[in-house]
Nucleic acid binder design. Structure first.
Length: 422
RNA sequence: CGGAGCGUGGCGCAGCUUGGUAGCGCGCAUCGUUCGGGACGAUGAGGUCGCCGGUUCAAAUCCGGCCGCUCCGACCA
Protein backbone atom coordinates (compact mmCIF):
# COMPACT_ATOMS: atom_id res chain seq x y z
CA UNK A 1 0.00 0.00 0.00
CA UNK A 2 1.25 3.42 -0.89
CA UNK A 3 1.13 5.96 1.87
CA UNK A 4 -0.10 8.56 -0.60
CA UNK A 5 -3.17 6.46 -1.26
CA UNK A 6 -4.13 5.03 2.10
CA UNK A 7 -6.80 6.83 4.05
CA UNK A 8 -4.61 7.90 6.95
CA UNK A 9 -3.57 10.94 8.89
CA UNK A 10 -1.34 10.89 11.91
CA UNK A 11 -1.34 13.43 14.71
CA UNK A 12 1.36 14.87 16.89
CA UNK A 13 -0.88 15.49 19.83
CA UNK A 14 -3.02 13.08 21.78
CA UNK A 15 -6.76 13.72 21.92
CA UNK A 16 -7.88 15.47 25.07
CA UNK A 17 -10.74 13.10 25.72
CA UNK A 18 -8.61 9.98 26.06
CA UNK A 19 -6.34 9.07 28.88
CA UNK A 20 -5.67 5.43 28.08
CA UNK A 21 -2.43 4.81 26.24
CA UNK A 22 -4.02 2.39 23.81
CA UNK A 23 -6.71 4.85 22.72
CA UNK A 24 -4.33 7.81 22.54
CA UNK A 25 -1.82 6.03 20.35
CA UNK A 26 -4.31 4.24 18.14
CA UNK A 27 -6.08 7.53 17.46
CA UNK A 28 -2.86 9.45 16.91
CA UNK A 29 -1.67 6.79 14.51
CA UNK A 30 -4.96 6.79 12.63
CA UNK A 31 -6.01 3.24 13.44
CA UNK A 32 -9.29 4.07 15.12
CA UNK A 33 -11.72 6.92 15.56
CA UNK A 34 -13.81 7.55 18.60
CA UNK A 35 -17.52 7.64 17.96
CA UNK A 36 -18.61 8.06 21.57
CA UNK A 37 -17.64 6.76 24.97
CA UNK A 38 -16.75 3.10 24.62
CA UNK A 39 -17.55 3.04 20.90
CA UNK A 40 -14.81 3.16 18.29
CA UNK A 41 -14.63 3.00 14.51
CA UNK A 42 -11.86 0.98 12.93
CA UNK A 43 -10.09 2.88 10.14
CA UNK A 44 -8.19 1.08 7.35
CA UNK A 45 -4.99 0.43 9.30
CA UNK A 46 -6.92 -0.54 12.40
CA UNK A 47 -9.15 -2.88 10.48
CA UNK A 48 -6.18 -4.63 8.89
CA UNK A 49 -4.69 -5.12 12.33
CA UNK A 50 -7.95 -6.32 13.81
CA UNK A 51 -8.28 -8.68 10.85
CA UNK A 52 -4.84 -10.15 11.53
CA UNK A 53 -5.82 -10.83 15.12
CA UNK A 54 -9.09 -12.39 14.01
CA UNK A 55 -7.32 -14.54 11.43
CA UNK A 56 -5.03 -16.01 14.07
CA UNK A 57 -8.00 -16.82 16.25
CA UNK A 58 -9.98 -18.18 13.32
CA UNK A 59 -7.22 -20.49 12.24
CA UNK A 60 -6.87 -22.07 15.65
CA UNK A 61 -10.63 -22.36 16.10
CA UNK A 62 -10.83 -24.21 12.81
CA UNK A 63 -8.00 -26.50 13.90
CA UNK A 64 -10.00 -27.74 16.87
CA UNK A 65 -13.09 -28.34 14.80
CA UNK A 66 -14.89 -25.04 15.14
CA UNK A 67 -17.25 -24.08 12.35
CA UNK A 68 -17.70 -20.41 11.67
CA UNK A 69 -21.11 -18.84 11.36
CA UNK A 70 -22.56 -15.41 11.85
CA UNK A 71 -25.60 -14.82 14.02
CA UNK A 72 -27.75 -11.74 14.05
CA UNK A 73 -27.22 -8.75 16.28
CA UNK A 74 -30.94 -8.10 16.60
CA UNK A 75 -32.40 -10.49 19.13
CA UNK A 76 -36.04 -11.46 19.55
CA UNK A 77 -37.47 -11.50 23.02
CA UNK A 78 -38.80 -15.08 23.01
CA UNK A 79 -35.56 -17.02 23.42
CA UNK A 80 -34.43 -14.76 26.20
CA UNK A 81 -37.73 -15.02 27.98
CA UNK A 82 -37.29 -18.80 27.93
CA UNK A 83 -33.84 -18.67 29.45
CA UNK A 84 -35.03 -16.10 31.97
CA UNK A 85 -32.55 -13.46 30.90
CA UNK A 86 -34.73 -10.89 29.17
CA UNK A 87 -35.43 -8.93 32.32
CA UNK A 88 -33.22 -5.96 33.13
CA UNK A 89 -32.94 -7.31 36.65
CA UNK A 90 -31.04 -10.29 35.24
CA UNK A 91 -28.91 -8.54 32.63
CA UNK A 92 -28.74 -4.82 33.15
CA UNK A 93 -26.48 -3.94 30.23
CA UNK A 94 -29.07 -4.52 27.51
CA UNK A 95 -29.74 -2.10 24.73
CA UNK A 96 -33.41 -2.76 23.99
CA UNK A 97 -36.08 -1.16 21.90
CA UNK A 98 -38.41 -0.94 24.85
CA UNK A 99 -37.53 -0.96 28.51
CA UNK A 100 -39.84 -0.58 31.44
CA UNK A 101 -42.65 0.54 29.18
CA UNK A 102 -40.54 3.37 27.78
CA UNK A 103 -40.21 4.43 24.19
CA UNK A 104 -38.44 2.23 21.66
CA UNK A 105 -38.55 1.95 17.91
CA UNK A 106 -41.84 3.40 16.75
CA UNK A 107 -42.86 0.18 15.03
CA UNK A 108 -42.26 -3.50 15.32
CA UNK A 109 -41.77 -5.97 18.11
CA UNK A 110 -39.70 -5.69 21.24
CA UNK A 111 -36.06 -6.34 20.37
CA UNK A 112 -32.69 -6.44 22.02
CA UNK A 113 -29.21 -5.82 20.64
CA UNK A 114 -27.12 -8.90 21.21
CA UNK A 115 -24.99 -8.82 24.32
CA UNK A 116 -24.15 -12.50 23.96
CA UNK A 117 -25.47 -15.37 21.85
CA UNK A 118 -26.13 -18.42 24.01
CA UNK A 119 -29.87 -18.16 23.52
CA UNK A 120 -29.63 -17.61 19.79
CA UNK A 121 -27.22 -20.43 19.06
CA UNK A 122 -29.09 -22.85 21.32
CA UNK A 123 -32.35 -22.10 19.56
CA UNK A 124 -30.72 -22.58 16.15
CA UNK A 125 -29.22 -25.89 17.14
CA UNK A 126 -32.69 -27.27 17.80
CA UNK A 127 -33.01 -27.43 14.04
CA UNK A 128 -29.92 -29.54 13.62
CA UNK A 129 -29.37 -31.58 16.74
CA UNK A 130 -31.79 -34.43 17.35
CA UNK A 131 -29.65 -37.52 17.71
CA UNK A 132 -26.41 -38.48 19.40
CA UNK A 133 -25.14 -38.81 15.83
CA UNK A 134 -25.44 -35.05 15.43
CA UNK A 135 -23.06 -34.37 18.28
CA UNK A 136 -20.66 -32.96 19.17
CA UNK A 137 -20.93 -29.62 17.38
CA UNK A 138 -18.62 -26.66 17.77
CA UNK A 139 -19.77 -23.35 16.31
CA UNK A 140 -18.21 -19.96 16.56
CA UNK A 141 -18.50 -16.49 15.17
CA UNK A 142 -17.05 -13.02 15.24
CA UNK A 143 -19.95 -10.77 16.09
CA UNK A 144 -20.68 -7.42 17.60
CA UNK A 145 -21.77 -7.41 21.20
CA UNK A 146 -23.59 -4.47 22.70
CA UNK A 147 -23.34 -3.96 26.41
CA UNK A 148 -24.41 -0.75 28.01
CA UNK A 149 -21.59 -0.60 30.49
CA UNK A 150 -22.32 1.80 33.32
CA UNK A 151 -18.82 3.06 32.85
CA UNK A 152 -16.87 2.25 29.74
CA UNK A 153 -13.24 3.22 29.96
CA UNK A 154 -9.63 2.58 29.05
CA UNK A 155 -10.09 2.87 25.30
CA UNK A 156 -10.49 -0.49 23.61
CA UNK A 157 -10.31 -2.36 26.90
CA UNK A 158 -13.89 -1.78 27.95
CA UNK A 159 -16.30 -0.92 25.17
CA UNK A 160 -20.05 -0.74 24.89
CA UNK A 161 -19.92 -2.06 21.35
CA UNK A 162 -17.23 -4.55 20.51
CA UNK A 163 -16.48 -7.57 18.40
CA UNK A 164 -16.22 -10.89 20.16
CA UNK A 165 -15.21 -14.30 19.01
CA UNK A 166 -17.61 -16.58 20.75
CA UNK A 167 -17.43 -20.32 20.38
CA UNK A 168 -20.15 -22.62 21.69
CA UNK A 169 -19.70 -26.32 22.24
CA UNK A 170 -22.49 -28.87 22.21
CA UNK A 171 -21.58 -32.20 23.71
CA UNK A 172 -23.33 -35.46 24.58
CA UNK A 173 -22.05 -35.75 28.10
CA UNK A 174 -19.76 -34.29 30.71
CA UNK A 175 -16.76 -36.25 29.63
CA UNK A 176 -17.04 -35.25 26.01
CA UNK A 177 -17.53 -31.67 27.14
CA UNK A 178 -14.53 -31.79 29.43
CA UNK A 179 -12.25 -33.10 26.71
CA UNK A 180 -13.18 -30.27 24.42
CA UNK A 181 -12.98 -27.74 27.21
CA UNK A 182 -9.37 -28.69 27.77
CA UNK A 183 -8.70 -28.61 24.07
CA UNK A 184 -9.93 -25.04 23.92
CA UNK A 185 -7.77 -24.18 26.88
CA UNK A 186 -4.70 -25.37 25.00
CA UNK A 187 -5.90 -23.65 21.84
CA UNK A 188 -6.20 -20.37 23.69
CA UNK A 189 -2.62 -20.56 24.89
CA UNK A 190 -1.58 -21.13 21.31
CA UNK A 191 -3.56 -18.10 20.20
CA UNK A 192 -2.12 -15.76 22.80
CA UNK A 193 1.33 -17.07 22.03
CA UNK A 194 0.88 -16.18 18.36
CA UNK A 195 -0.57 -12.81 19.29
CA UNK A 196 2.63 -12.00 21.14
CA UNK A 197 1.03 -12.08 24.60
CA UNK A 198 1.98 -15.64 25.53
CA UNK A 199 4.47 -14.76 28.22
CA UNK A 200 2.19 -12.40 30.10
CA UNK A 201 -1.02 -14.35 29.80
CA UNK A 202 -2.16 -16.60 32.63
CA UNK A 203 -4.88 -19.18 32.92
CA UNK A 204 -6.93 -17.72 35.72
CA UNK A 205 -9.45 -19.43 37.94
CA UNK A 206 -12.60 -17.39 38.28
CA UNK A 207 -16.18 -17.71 39.36
CA UNK A 208 -17.86 -20.62 37.66
CA UNK A 209 -21.55 -19.95 38.02
CA UNK A 210 -24.04 -22.67 38.84
CA UNK A 211 -22.67 -25.56 36.79
CA UNK A 212 -19.07 -25.82 37.82
CA UNK A 213 -16.78 -24.64 40.50
CA UNK A 214 -14.64 -22.51 38.23
CA UNK A 215 -14.63 -20.81 34.91
CA UNK A 216 -11.31 -19.95 33.35
CA UNK A 217 -10.18 -16.56 32.29
CA UNK A 218 -7.12 -15.75 30.25
CA UNK A 219 -5.62 -12.72 31.89
CA UNK A 220 -2.80 -10.65 30.44
CA UNK A 221 -0.74 -8.84 33.03
CA UNK A 222 -1.02 -5.10 32.48
CA UNK A 223 -0.93 -2.15 34.83
CA UNK A 224 -4.18 -0.80 33.43
CA UNK A 225 -5.94 -4.10 33.99
CA UNK A 226 -9.26 -4.07 35.77
CA UNK A 227 -8.93 -7.41 37.49
CA UNK A 228 -6.78 -8.17 40.47
CA UNK A 229 -5.02 -11.51 40.22
CA UNK A 230 -2.94 -13.67 42.46
CA UNK A 231 -0.35 -15.04 40.09
CA UNK A 232 1.59 -18.24 40.45
CA UNK A 233 4.42 -17.65 38.01
CA UNK A 234 6.01 -21.07 37.81
CA UNK A 235 2.71 -22.89 37.50
CA UNK A 236 1.66 -20.32 34.91
CA UNK A 237 -1.73 -19.80 36.51
CA UNK A 238 -3.56 -17.23 38.55
CA UNK A 239 -6.56 -16.85 40.80
CA UNK A 240 -8.96 -14.01 40.32
CA UNK A 241 -9.14 -12.16 43.61
CA UNK A 242 -12.95 -12.29 43.50
CA UNK A 243 -12.88 -16.01 44.32
CA UNK A 244 -9.70 -16.08 46.38
CA UNK A 245 -10.07 -18.10 49.59
CA UNK A 246 -8.35 -20.70 51.66
CA UNK A 247 -10.61 -23.32 50.21
CA UNK A 248 -9.63 -22.41 46.66
CA UNK A 249 -5.94 -22.52 47.54
CA UNK A 250 -6.39 -25.98 48.95
CA UNK A 251 -8.35 -27.07 45.90
CA UNK A 252 -5.55 -25.93 43.60
CA UNK A 253 -2.81 -27.15 45.92
CA UNK A 254 -1.15 -23.78 46.13
CA UNK A 255 0.21 -22.01 49.16
CA UNK A 256 -0.37 -18.36 49.81
CA UNK A 257 3.34 -17.52 49.80
CA UNK A 258 3.78 -18.55 46.17
CA UNK A 259 1.35 -15.92 44.90
CA UNK A 260 2.03 -12.40 43.72
CA UNK A 261 -0.73 -9.83 43.30
CA UNK A 262 -0.94 -8.25 39.85
CA UNK A 263 -3.38 -6.43 37.59
CA UNK A 264 -4.70 -8.18 34.52
CA UNK A 265 -6.88 -7.66 31.48
CA UNK A 266 -9.29 -10.45 30.71
CA UNK A 267 -8.52 -11.24 27.08
CA UNK A 268 -10.36 -14.55 27.00
CA UNK A 269 -12.82 -16.58 28.98
CA UNK A 270 -13.99 -20.16 28.84
CA UNK A 271 -17.06 -21.23 30.69
CA UNK A 272 -18.88 -24.52 31.25
CA UNK A 273 -22.61 -23.96 30.76
CA UNK A 274 -23.90 -27.40 31.56
CA UNK A 275 -27.58 -27.47 30.67
CA UNK A 276 -28.23 -23.88 31.68
CA UNK A 277 -29.51 -23.06 28.18
CA UNK A 278 -30.26 -26.42 26.62
CA UNK A 279 -32.90 -27.23 29.24
CA UNK A 280 -35.01 -24.08 29.21
CA UNK A 281 -34.77 -23.79 25.43
CA UNK A 282 -35.37 -27.48 24.89
CA UNK A 283 -32.18 -28.50 23.11
CA UNK A 284 -32.24 -32.28 23.61
CA UNK A 285 -31.00 -35.28 21.71
CA UNK A 286 -31.86 -38.95 21.66
CA UNK A 287 -29.05 -41.16 22.84
CA UNK A 288 -28.10 -44.66 21.71
CA UNK A 289 -30.67 -46.18 24.05
CA UNK A 290 -33.44 -43.97 22.73
CA UNK A 291 -33.48 -41.79 25.78
CA UNK A 292 -33.94 -38.02 25.54
CA UNK A 293 -31.06 -36.04 27.07
CA UNK A 294 -30.20 -32.34 27.32
CA UNK A 295 -27.12 -31.20 25.41
CA UNK A 296 -24.11 -30.18 27.51
CA UNK A 297 -22.80 -26.77 26.50
CA UNK A 298 -19.79 -24.55 26.95
CA UNK A 299 -18.91 -21.07 25.74
CA UNK A 300 -15.52 -19.66 24.89
CA UNK A 301 -14.86 -15.98 24.22
CA UNK A 302 -12.04 -13.78 23.04
CA UNK A 303 -12.38 -10.07 22.36
CA UNK A 304 -10.17 -9.20 19.37
CA UNK A 305 -10.53 -5.46 19.95
CA UNK A 306 -9.65 -5.79 23.59
CA UNK A 307 -6.68 -7.95 22.56
CA UNK A 308 -5.59 -5.19 20.21
CA UNK A 309 -5.77 -2.64 23.01
CA UNK A 310 -3.90 -4.96 25.33
CA UNK A 311 -1.12 -5.47 22.80
CA UNK A 312 -0.76 -1.71 22.50
CA UNK A 313 -0.63 -1.28 26.25
CA UNK A 314 1.94 -3.99 26.54
CA UNK A 315 4.37 -3.15 23.74
CA UNK A 316 4.04 0.55 22.95
CA UNK A 317 6.86 2.93 23.89
CA UNK A 318 7.15 6.70 24.11
CA UNK A 319 7.47 7.00 20.34
CA UNK A 320 4.33 5.11 19.51
CA UNK A 321 2.90 1.72 18.73
CA UNK A 322 4.99 -1.44 18.54
CA UNK A 323 3.31 -4.42 16.91
CA UNK A 324 4.41 -8.02 17.15
CA UNK A 325 5.13 -9.44 13.70
CA UNK A 326 1.95 -11.49 13.53
CA UNK A 327 -0.49 -8.69 14.09
CA UNK A 328 1.24 -5.71 12.44
CA UNK A 329 -0.90 -4.36 9.59
CA UNK A 330 2.23 -4.37 7.42
CA UNK A 331 5.63 -5.82 8.05
CA UNK A 332 7.66 -3.01 6.54
CA UNK A 333 7.57 0.77 6.53
CA UNK A 334 9.39 1.77 3.35
CA UNK A 335 10.55 5.37 3.61
CA UNK A 336 11.70 7.07 0.45
CA UNK A 337 13.86 10.07 1.24
CA UNK A 338 13.94 12.57 -1.57
CA UNK A 339 12.32 12.37 -4.96
CA UNK A 340 15.14 12.35 -7.41
CA UNK A 341 14.64 10.00 -10.32
CA UNK A 342 17.08 7.39 -9.06
CA UNK A 343 15.64 7.33 -5.56
CA UNK A 344 12.08 7.11 -6.81
CA UNK A 345 12.96 4.34 -9.20
CA UNK A 346 14.83 2.31 -6.59
CA UNK A 347 12.07 2.71 -4.04
CA UNK A 348 9.36 1.82 -6.55
CA UNK A 349 11.28 -1.30 -7.44
CA UNK A 350 11.74 -2.25 -3.81
CA UNK A 351 8.02 -1.76 -3.21
CA UNK A 352 7.12 -3.93 -6.18
CA UNK A 353 9.57 -6.63 -5.19
CA UNK A 354 8.37 -6.84 -1.60
CA UNK A 355 4.77 -6.88 -2.72
CA UNK A 356 5.46 -9.66 -5.20
CA UNK A 357 6.98 -11.68 -2.41
CA UNK A 358 3.92 -11.22 -0.23
CA UNK A 359 5.78 -9.08 2.29
CA UNK A 360 3.37 -6.48 3.56
CA UNK A 361 4.75 -3.02 2.99
CA UNK A 362 3.52 0.49 3.58
CA UNK A 363 5.39 2.62 1.10
CA UNK A 364 5.85 6.22 2.16
CA UNK A 365 6.01 7.84 -1.24
CA UNK A 366 5.09 11.30 -0.03
CA UNK A 367 7.27 14.35 -0.49
CA UNK A 368 7.74 15.08 3.16
CA UNK A 369 10.85 15.64 5.17
CA UNK A 370 12.74 12.73 6.68
CA UNK A 371 11.93 13.63 10.25
CA UNK A 372 8.24 13.40 9.61
CA UNK A 373 8.61 10.02 7.95
CA UNK A 374 10.68 8.62 10.79
CA UNK A 375 8.27 9.93 13.38
CA UNK A 376 5.38 8.38 11.49
CA UNK A 377 7.20 5.09 11.08
CA UNK A 378 7.74 4.96 14.83
CA UNK A 379 4.19 5.97 15.61
CA UNK A 380 2.63 3.40 13.31
CA UNK A 381 4.72 0.67 14.89
CA UNK A 382 5.46 -1.59 11.92
CA UNK A 383 8.19 -4.12 12.80
CA UNK A 384 10.71 -3.06 10.15
CA UNK A 385 11.73 0.25 8.65
CA UNK A 386 13.49 0.42 5.32
CA UNK A 387 15.02 3.67 4.09
CA UNK A 388 16.03 4.29 0.51
CA UNK A 389 17.82 7.57 -0.21
CA UNK A 390 20.63 9.07 -2.27
CA UNK A 391 22.91 8.20 0.58
CA UNK A 392 21.99 4.52 0.72
CA UNK A 393 22.01 4.20 -3.04
CA UNK A 394 25.61 5.36 -3.18
CA UNK A 395 26.34 1.97 -1.61
CA UNK A 396 23.70 0.20 -3.70
CA UNK A 397 22.03 -0.41 -0.39
CA UNK A 398 19.00 0.28 1.72
CA UNK A 399 18.95 0.96 5.42
CA UNK A 400 17.17 -1.48 7.71
CA UNK A 401 15.99 -0.83 11.23
CA UNK A 402 13.73 -2.73 13.60
CA UNK A 403 11.06 -0.83 15.46
CA UNK A 404 12.21 -1.97 18.87
CA UNK A 405 15.89 -1.17 18.33
CA UNK A 406 17.84 1.96 17.49
CA UNK A 407 20.46 0.14 15.44
CA UNK A 408 20.46 0.52 11.70
CA UNK A 409 22.32 -1.46 9.12
CA UNK A 410 23.04 -1.03 5.46
CA UNK A 411 22.10 -4.00 3.31
CA UNK A 412 22.67 -4.46 -0.39
CA UNK A 413 19.61 -3.93 -2.52
CA UNK A 414 19.68 -7.44 -3.92
CA UNK A 415 19.31 -8.78 -0.37
CA UNK A 416 16.02 -6.98 0.16
CA UNK A 417 13.67 -9.95 0.11
CA UNK A 418 15.99 -12.22 2.10
CA UNK A 419 16.47 -9.56 4.75
CA UNK A 420 12.76 -8.97 5.19
CA UNK A 421 11.26 -12.37 4.51
CA UNK A 422 10.57 -14.96 7.15
C1' C B 1 -25.39 5.48 39.89
C1' G B 2 -22.06 8.72 43.74
C1' G B 3 -17.45 12.09 43.61
C1' A B 4 -13.98 15.34 40.84
C1' G B 5 -12.60 17.82 36.31
C1' C B 6 -13.65 19.37 31.38
C1' G B 7 -16.62 21.09 26.60
C1' U B 8 -14.09 27.56 22.12
C1' G B 9 -12.32 26.01 13.50
C1' G B 10 -10.13 19.00 11.87
C1' C B 11 -6.51 18.54 16.53
C1' G B 12 -4.18 20.88 21.11
C1' C B 13 -5.20 25.31 23.83
C1' A B 14 -5.85 30.84 25.58
C1' G B 15 -9.90 34.24 26.38
C1' C B 16 -14.52 33.84 31.05
C1' U B 17 -12.66 36.54 37.38
C1' U B 18 -14.17 42.50 35.54
C1' G B 19 -20.09 41.29 29.40
C1' G B 20 -18.53 45.28 24.17
C1' U B 21 -15.08 43.27 16.53
C1' A B 22 -13.29 35.29 18.75
C1' G B 23 -7.43 34.62 19.32
C1' C B 24 -2.71 31.39 19.38
C1' G B 25 -0.07 26.83 17.93
C1' C B 26 -0.56 22.39 14.88
C1' G B 27 -2.88 20.81 10.54
C1' C B 28 -4.93 22.49 5.54
C1' A B 29 -4.30 25.62 0.49
C1' U B 30 -0.89 28.59 -2.83
C1' C B 31 4.19 30.52 -3.74
C1' G B 32 9.41 30.57 -2.57
C1' U B 33 13.72 28.74 0.13
C1' U B 34 14.80 23.98 2.42
C1' C B 35 15.48 18.28 2.66
C1' G B 36 18.55 11.87 7.31
C1' G B 37 14.57 12.75 13.27
C1' G B 38 8.01 16.34 13.12
C1' A B 39 12.15 23.20 8.75
C1' C B 40 11.44 28.64 7.50
C1' G B 41 9.12 33.01 5.21
C1' A B 42 4.81 35.16 2.75
C1' U B 43 -0.35 34.93 1.62
C1' G B 44 -5.08 32.54 2.46
C1' A B 45 -9.40 29.37 3.74
C1' G B 46 -11.82 27.48 7.92
C1' G B 47 -15.61 28.72 14.18
C1' U B 48 -23.95 27.59 15.42
C1' C B 49 -17.85 29.33 21.45
C1' G B 50 -21.87 21.52 23.49
C1' C B 51 -27.56 22.42 23.50
C1' C B 52 -31.98 25.04 25.35
C1' G B 53 -33.77 28.98 28.10
C1' G B 54 -33.05 33.52 31.18
C1' U B 55 -30.72 38.47 32.56
C1' U B 56 -28.91 42.69 29.54
C1' C B 57 -28.84 47.89 24.76
C1' A B 58 -25.16 43.85 24.22
C1' A B 59 -23.40 37.00 26.42
C1' A B 60 -17.86 32.49 24.70
C1' U B 61 -18.02 35.46 29.36
C1' C B 62 -23.36 36.22 34.23
C1' C B 63 -27.80 32.82 35.95
C1' G B 64 -30.86 28.12 35.39
C1' G B 65 -31.68 23.45 33.12
C1' C B 66 -30.03 19.62 29.96
C1' C B 67 -26.45 16.81 26.98
C1' G B 68 -21.61 14.95 26.18
C1' C B 69 -16.38 13.50 27.51
C1' U B 70 -12.36 11.93 31.06
C1' C B 71 -10.68 10.10 35.72
C1' C B 72 -11.81 7.80 40.86
C1' G B 73 -15.50 4.66 43.11
C1' A B 74 -19.88 1.21 42.74
C1' C B 75 -21.19 -2.35 38.83
C1' C B 76 -19.09 -6.05 35.29
C1' A B 77 -24.39 -11.27 32.70
Amino acid sequence: MRRSQIFLRTRKEAPADEEAKNAQLLIRAGYIHKEMAGVYDYLPLGLITLGKIMDIIRQVMNEIGGQELFLSALQPKENWARSGRWHDDVIDVWFKTRTHGGQGFHMGPELGLSNTHEEAITAIMKNFVHSYKDLPVYAYQFQTKFRNEPRSKSGLLRCREFIMKDLYSFSRNDQEHQEFYEKVQAAYFKIFERLGLGKETYLTFASGGSFSQFSHEFQTITDVGEDTLLVHESKKLAINKEIYSGKVLKELQISKEELIEKKGVEVGNIFPLGTRFSEPLGLNYTDEAGKLRPVIMGCYGIGPGRVMGTIVEHFADDKGLVWPENVAPFRVYLARLGNSKTVVQAADEAYALLTQNAIGVLYDDRSVRPGEMFADADLLGLPKRVVISERTLQNSSFELKSRESDDTQLIKLDQLVQALGD
